[in-house]
Design a protein around this nucleic acid. Structure first.
Lengths: 365, 365
DNA sequence: GGACGATCCTACAACGTTGTAGAACGCTGT
DNA sequence: ACAGCGTTCTACAACGTTGTAGGATCGTCC
C-alpha cells in the first residue's frame, strides 16, 4: 500500500507507526501517543481524527518500543517445576487467568525441580523480559533465602524458603494436614499410614504435612508409629504406588492412608487396587491438592483443596503492587484458605457420596 | 554503586549499558555489540578487554532494545485450549523444552476452546510480542482457514483446519484409531462402543477417529452399530463418565469401549467401576493420547501415544524456519508417528502385563 | 485589562541496541 | 612504490515510543 522505506537499514516489517498516524491526522506524534494512552486533555475533534487515522491505517502500538522507553514489559515470570505435574498445570492456568484480568502476560519457565535450574531462573537473561517473578521452587531450602535478593520483585510460593526478601503466598499445610487426618480419625481409623514423607527434611510441604498429621494423632491420643510412614522422594504416582506397595509388603496393620499429595494418593490407590484391597472398606485414602483427577479416580479421592485461585490471585496482586510501587515495604506473608473435600475414598460405605466441604481457616501475617 | 543518572527522564533501573562497557574497555559501543554477538573480526586483546569490562560491570544486553532494533523478539506464542487439560499441559511442556533447545521462549495463551477467543489470539496485541504462533484451535472449523492469513508465521496443530495458509503438524488420527480398534478386535471383541463422538461434524479429531474405527470394523467384517456410539461434546472425564453411563443404561451389548481420548476413557473407566463392571474381563477399554494418568489408572489404560515430542519439535522447527526465512515456500504438512501402548485395560487376564509398543506409521506430505 | 490558570498541543531528546558505511592499518604481490 | 585486499574498529543513524518542557490559546477573576 504505502511502502516507501525511508532509509537503508533493515528492520521493521513495514508496520504502521505513530508517525504515519500523526501525519494522516495532521497532529504531532506525541498527540497520537496521548490518544493511545488515554491522556484526558484532548479536544474531541482531535481525538476523533486520530482515532479515525488509527482505524484506517490499522495502527497497533509497538510493544518493543514501549518496553524500551518505559523500562517495563508487562510480563511476569512464573517459575515452576513442570507443567506435566497436574498441580502445577492447574496452578499455571489459574495464574494466567488472574494475570489476564489485570492486563499482564505470564511467561512460564520450567525448572524440573532441579536445584541448579531453580537458581538459574533467578538470574537468567529472561528476567530482562519480565517485570517480576512468581517463584515456586522445590529443590531449594531455607539456606537459599539469600538467592532471592535480586533486583526485581519476587513472590514466593510453597514451603521451601521462609523469611527471604520476598512476599510469600502459602497455605496452612500443618492445619490442613491436621484437619484431613482428623477426618480419618473421625471415621474411626487409627492405623493411618503416610505416603510421601521426606526423612530428615526440616522444611517443605512434606515436613509440614507430617507435622499436622502427628498433631492430629496426638490430639486424639493415638500413638505415632514410624512404621506407618513411607518415604517418597518425588511426589509422583509411581513413587506413591511403590511406597504403598512397600507398606503392604511390610505387613504392618493399616486402615487408612494419607498421601501427602494427590499424585501420591492416586498412586497408592493404584497399588491397593492391584492387591485387591477394598477402598475405603479395608483402607481409606486421602490426598492433598484437589487436582482434577482426584474427582475421577476409582474410588473418587477425598482430599484437601488448597484454594488455588486465591493463591494465584494473591500472588499476582502482591507482585503487581511491588512492580508499581518500588518503595520499601515490609514483606508480606499470606496464608490461603483450604477446604476438605470428602469423596468416596473415605466414605462410610463404598458407594457414591455427595461431596461436602469443611471450611478452612485463613491467617494474614 | 555508580548511580548518576544522566538526564531528567524517568526510565531504566540504572542498569549497565553497552556504553558503560565501552567506556571501561576503551572501545566504541559497536565493538561491544560485536563482541556480544560473536562477530569474528576482533583482535583477541580487544575482545579480552571488552569481556573483562562486561564481567566487571555485570553487563547484560537489554532485550527490549535489541527487540526494537531487530524487529524480532525471540518469543513464539503457543495458543491452546487449557493447561488444566493434561494433554495440553504435556504438549506445552514438550514445546517449551523443544524451544529452549533452540534458544527460543514460549508464551502460552489459553483460549478455553472458545471460538471467539481462538480467533482473537490471532490478532491480539500479544502477537506484537511474538515472532510466530503455534496454534491449536478446538472450536474453529475448515471455514476459518482464511483467518490464518496473518502477517506472521503460524504452525497449525490438530484436526480442525486443513489447507490454511500455514504449516500443519498433525498425527494420523484415522490410522491410529484404526490400529487401536484392530487391537480390540484382535483380542476378540466385537461389540465395541465409542465414547466422545461429535454428531454431524465433518472435521476434527472425533470425526477422524470414528472413521478409523469404522474402517477397522469394516475390514474385519463387523457391522457398524450406531447404538454403540455415544456423544460427548467436551472431552473431559466427566463427559466420558456420563456417556458411558448412558450406554450402560441403554442396555446395548458391549464388550469394549474406545474412548476418543484418554480423559473420556478414564471417565468411562470410572463409570464402569461404579457399576462394578470388570475391566477388561467384561469390557475392555482403550483411550487416545497417552497422558501420564493413563499409566496409573486402575486398571492401567491401553492407549495411542501420539508422538508428542516429535510434534513439538517439528512444530518449533517449522515455525523457526519460517521466521528466519520469510521467502515464499509451499506450506508443509507433517504427520507424526504414533504407537499403541498396551496396558491392563485390554489384557488377556486382568493382571499386570508388560507394556508393549506397536510401531506407528509416518507420512510426509 | 492584565495576571493567572487550565487546556491543548508540539518539539526534542532519550530508552539501548544494531546495520551501514567507511576510515585506518597492515600485508601481499608486482 | 603502490594498488588491492582483508582485518579491525568507529561514527552515525535509526528502530518506535514516551517524559519533559514549554508554546499557544482561551476563559476567569479581581
Amino acid at each position: 500500500m504505502n511502502g516507501a522505506r525511508k532509509n537503508g537499514t533493515t528492520p521493521g516489517r513495514g508496520a504502521v507507526t505513530m508517525n504515519d498516524v500523526a501525519t494522516r491526522a495532521g497532529v504531532s506524534i506525541k498527540t497520537v501517543s496521548n490518544v493511545v494512552n488515554g491522556y484526558p486533555h484532548i479536544r474531541p475533534g482531535t481525538r476523533a481524527r486520530v482515532e479515525e487515522a488509527i482505524e484506517a491505517l490499522g495502527y497497533r502500538v509497538n510493544i518493543s518500543a514501549r518496553n524500551l522507553r518505559q523500562g517495563r514489559t508487562g510480563i511476569v515470570g512464573l517459575a515452576l517445576p513442570e507443567l506435566s505435574l497436574p498441580y502445577f498445570a492447574e496452578l499455571a492456568d489459574s495464574v494466567i487467568r488472574a494475570a489476564e484480568q489485570r492486563g499482564v502476560i505470564v511467561l512460564i519457565e520450567q525448572t524440573g525441580a532441579v536445584r541448579e535450574r531453580e537458581l538459574e531462573v533467578l538470574t537468567s537473561e529472561r528476567r530482562q523480559l519480565t517485570d517480576g517473578l512468581i517463584y515456586s521452587p522445590l529443590a531449594l531450602g531455607p539456606e537459599d533465602g539469600a538467592a532471592l535478593d535480586v533486583p526485581y520483585p519476587v513472590v514466593l510460593l510453597g514451603e521451601r524458603i521462609f523469611g527471604g526478601p520476598a512476599d510469600h503466598v502459602t497455605m496452612n499445610n500443618v492445619e490442613a494436614a491436621r484437619a484431613v487426618t482428623e477426618h480419618l480419625l473421625g471415621i474411626g481409623r487409627r492405623r493411618i499410614a503416610v505416603v510421601g514423607a521426606h526423612e530428615g527434611e526440616a522444611v517443605g510441604s512434606a515436613a509440614l504435612r507430617v507435622r499436622g498429621y502427628r498433631e492430629a494423632l496426638e490430639a486424639a491420643g493415638v500413638a505415632y508409629d514410624p512404621a506407618l510412614v513411607a518415604e517418597a522422594g518425588l511426589w509422583h504416582r509411581s513413587t506413591g504406588a511403590e511406597a504403598m506397595a512397600r507398606l503392604l509388603d511390610a505387613g504392618v496393620e493399616i486402615d487408612a492412608v494419607f498421601g501427602l499429595n494427590d499424585a501420591l494418593a492416586l498412586g497408592a490407590l493404584h497399588a491397593l487396587h492391584d492387591r485387591r484391597v477394598d477402598v475405603p472398606g479395608e483402607i481409606a485414602v486421602v490426598g492433598f491438592d484437589d487436582i482434577e483427577d482426584a474427582a475421577y479416580a476409582s474410588p473418587t479421592l477425598t482430599t484437601v483443596s488448597p484454594g488455588r485461585e486465591q493463591i494465584a490471585r494473591t500472588a499476582i496482586d502482591l507482585l503487581l503492587a511491588r512492580i508499581q510501587d518500588s518503595s520499601e515495604r515490609p514483606y508480606e506473608r499470606v496464608i490461603a484458605d483450604f477446604e476438605i473435600v470428602e469423596r468416596e475414598s473415605t466414605a462410610g460405605q463404598s458407594a457414591s457420596v455427595p461431596v461436602a466441604a469443611v471450611p478452612g481457616r485463613s491467617i494474614l501475617a
